[in-house]
Simulated scan of single mutants.
Amino acid sequence: MAGRASGNRYYTGPISDHFDGIRFFNPGGEEPKGLGGLLKWRFNGKSVAWPKSYPSPFEPAVPERRISGPQLVVTAVGHASFLIQAAGLNILTDPVWSERTSPFSSVGPKRVNAPGIRFQDLPVIDIVIVTHNHYDHMDLATLKRLQEAHRPHFATPLGNDAILRPALGDANITVVDWGDAVYAGKGVTLHCEPCHHWSARGMRDRRMALWAAFVIETPVGKIYHIGDTGFHGGINYAAAAEKHGSFRLAILPIGAYEPQWFMKAQHQNPAEAVQGMQLCRAATAIAHHWGTFKLTDEGIEEPLAALSVALTEAGIRPERFRPLRPGEVFEVPDL
């Protein structure tokens, strides 16, 4: 619900261990850097150029209409967007089909590869998870298209409905806080869990809507999806394992981490992602948040090299932690 009277334009609610009455925060965590830090980073002269085009080696996928039985199939769309198919349900995470992740149509990060599924080739989408409101995760143009074509059930953390509702009209939107769970049908439950991040759509709404990770509990295993997070000493990974046990699959970000002095509170690096995989006891992991939109300083394939090194040092076989490319279809090994 809107909260203009409280000073929060998106949400009013009781004070909690992660909401001070106006803004959300990471308990015991680190706030994002301010304008001074942003300017220091932007003018550091250390950004590695990306190619204008970085096409995927995979053709756009045409997914099965439904997946049933013990199968769990994940198709990479790009960045943090995935189609997850399990237990007869089709789930999209942070769907972005737009050319740019920006409030503007002609400037801002532009995709360097096409979506891994053509929009018209999507199966009927049942559930859309929007982890937070940054433009590379909450793409209103895509969400509006999904509502018009599929009328899915949207799940998102507190306050984000105030942004979604004007674009999506009478959409079925469930708003959740950390620790909440919502039954999605066919034996699938969505659990909203903490991650170390922040939110903003502009200059005056920082941390006014909540950010979250999601655990997708299905009859064929649990999936831990994190759209964005800083490592934060692995606290949230350990807590997820303590609460949910092990995971058949973890979908973890590995990119947008340089310079680390500026990014570490919001984006983990590949070595931290590998530690997270171990802490949450995931049998298999998928790496995302790299290779589609240039957001930070590292080169386009630096996360891949760093992931390879981290896996070797941890003694983890590379096939257990896969950096999927757009259009790549992955049948997750059965536990």
Score class of each variant (00 low, 15 high):
Y11M: 06
I15Y: 07
H18S: 10
F19M: 08
D20N: 15
E31I: 09
L39W: 14
K40H: 15
G45P: 11
A61C: 13
I67H: 01
S68E: 14
Q71R: 15
V74Y: 07
S81E: 09
D94Q: 07
S98Q: 07
S102I: 11
V107T: 15
A114N: 06
V124F: 08
I127R: 03
H132T: 02
L140C: 11
R145H: 08
L146S: 05
H153T: 10
L164G: 02
D170Q: 08
N172K: 13
H191R: 11
E193A: 09
E193W: 09
W198G: 07
S199I: 05
R201N: 12
R201S: 10
M203V: 15
M203A: 15
R204F: 15
L210N: 06
G221S: 13
D228F: 13
F231N: 04
H232K: 14
N236L: 12
Y237L: 12
A240Q: 08
A241K: 12
E242M: 11
S246A: 15
F247C: 06
A256P: 02
P259N: 06
K264H: 14
Q266Y: 13
P270L: 02
V274H: 04
Q275V: 05
M277I: 07
M277Y: 05
A283G: 11
I286Y: 08
H288R: 05
H288S: 03
T292W: 02
T296A: 13
D297I: 08
D297C: 08
L311T: 08
R317T: 13
G327H: 00
